[in-house]
């Protein structure tokens, strides 16, 4: 199980690196979307590992709120590009 956890954290490093390096705003947004989902799944995974369901609820909330916030942000960026 912890091997899987390490693999997942390694995967999480890729979009982090990409968000840091890439200058195009949409590529950055993609990387952030990826980070948001992956962290939420990691939180759920850890909550199962530790058998602590309060953490799991946080994961489910992050899953929704993070994606919704990114959708709003994408709309704002589009508007700003238009004007």
């Amino acid at each position: 199980m912890s091997l899987l956890l390490i693999a997942m954290i390694l995967v999480l490093l890729i979009p982090l690196y990409d968000a840091w390096k890439n200058d195009n705003i949409w590529q950055k947004m993609l990387a952030f979307a990826s980070i948001s989902t992956k962290t939420a799944i990691l939180i759920l995974f850890i909550s199962v590992l530790r058998d602590d369901w309060a953490i799991g609820i946080v994961g489910a909330i992050v899953l929704t709120v993070g994606n919704a916030a990114l959708m709003l942000l994408a709309n704002i960026i589009k508007r700003m590009n238009e004007t």
């Binding site: 949409w26 947004m29 993609l30 979307a33 994606n67 990114l70 959708m71 994408a74 709309n75 960026i77 589009k78």
Partner: peptide
Amino acid sequence: MLGYVLAYCS
């Protein structure tokens, strides 16, 4: 939905 919104906006 995020995929659709990102595709549309970008």
